[in-house]
């Protein structure tokens, strides 16, 4: 492991990311558009729902609008991070192999990608968290941002796994949109969840614990430790899987 190689690669990855207009548009515009649509379309009617990760003991009464904002904040963070992570791994896979022929170790490139991803997670979670807080009073903004970072971590890991496994960009995007849409964008909605016929299935989807952590942080004074820890485990699972695939696919014979 060579620190200079990792830092050079990190600096180049960040330059490439920020020079792509579509990345900047996605980062800035998508959250604003989503939140605006929610703010315009949802009602302020209060809806009671229970926090699924707390054994059904805790009920909350929150407005539909505020709940939708939290729910969409999670969905936005998940979608953006999985797309960026997939793009990061997939886009340069051929030229990364050339860098390895020239001396880079797969782990050095992987580590620089993970560092870039971490920076992006921090940036997106802070931005989306602050935007959420701009729309309504969030009980614990710091924890809310942390739970969005957890969403980014879980879905970033998923994006890395998709990018490592699937060569085609279009197919990769399809995998990401499918899961992000079904999981973070639909099944984790607390209103849907409350009446779902098979709640156990929803428990095992990647956005379950991060959205629970976000709901706890946004509306209650309870501890979201359990949901946060489970999110970390989920993210680590995706990360380990994607790292394994990356190293196997990228190694060269010297």
């Amino acid at each position: 492991m060579n620190v200079r190689r990792i830092m050079t690669s990190l600096s180049m990855i960040l330059r490439m990311l920020f020079r792509r207009r579509i990345v900047l548009i996605l980062l800035v515009v998508i959250p604003i558009v989503f939140f605006s649509v929610v703010a315009i379309t949802t009602s302020i009617q209060k809806v009671p729902f229970r926090i699924a990760s707390m054994n059904g003991k805790v009920f909350i009464l929150a407005s539909e609008k505020h709940m939708a904002l939290v729910f969409f904040a999670v969905a936005i963070a998940g979608f953006l991070m999985s797309f960026l992570a997939m793009n990061l791994i997939q886009k340069n896979s051929t030229i990364n192999r050339r860098l390895m022929v020239c001396g880079y170790h797969p782990l050095e490139l992987l580590l620089s990608n993970l560092l870039a991803l971490t920076l992006m997670i921090l940036m997106i979670s802070v931005y989306v968290g602050l935007l959420t807080a701009a729309f309504f009073h969030v009980s614990h903004p710091g924890m809310m941002i942390f739970s969005l970072a957890l969403t980014g971590f879980v879905y970033g890991g998923y994006g890395l796994a998709v990018g490592s496994l699937i060569a085609g960009e279009l197919e990769g995007i399809l995998f990401i949109v499918l899961l992000a849409n079904i999981d973070a964008g639909w099944l984790q909605n607390p209103i849907f969840y409350a009446e779902a016929q098979n709640q156990a299935l929803i428990h095992y989807l990647p956005a379950f614990y991060p959205s629970q952590a976000a709901i706890i942080a946004a509306f209650t004074d309870y501890s979201g430790l359990n949901a946060s820890l489970n999110s970390l485990w989920y993210g680590l699972g995706f990360l380990a899987f994607s790292m394994l695939i990356f190293v196997i696919k990228m190694r060269i014979r010297k």
């Binding site: 060579n2 200079r4 190689r5 050079t8 690669s9 860098l99 390895m100 020239c102 001396g103 880079y104």
Partner: peptide, 9 residues
């Protein structure tokens, strides 16, 4: 040049 020089050490 900078990226590949790092690769070559």
């Amino acid at each position: 040049f900078r990226y590949f020089s790092a690769a070559y050490g």
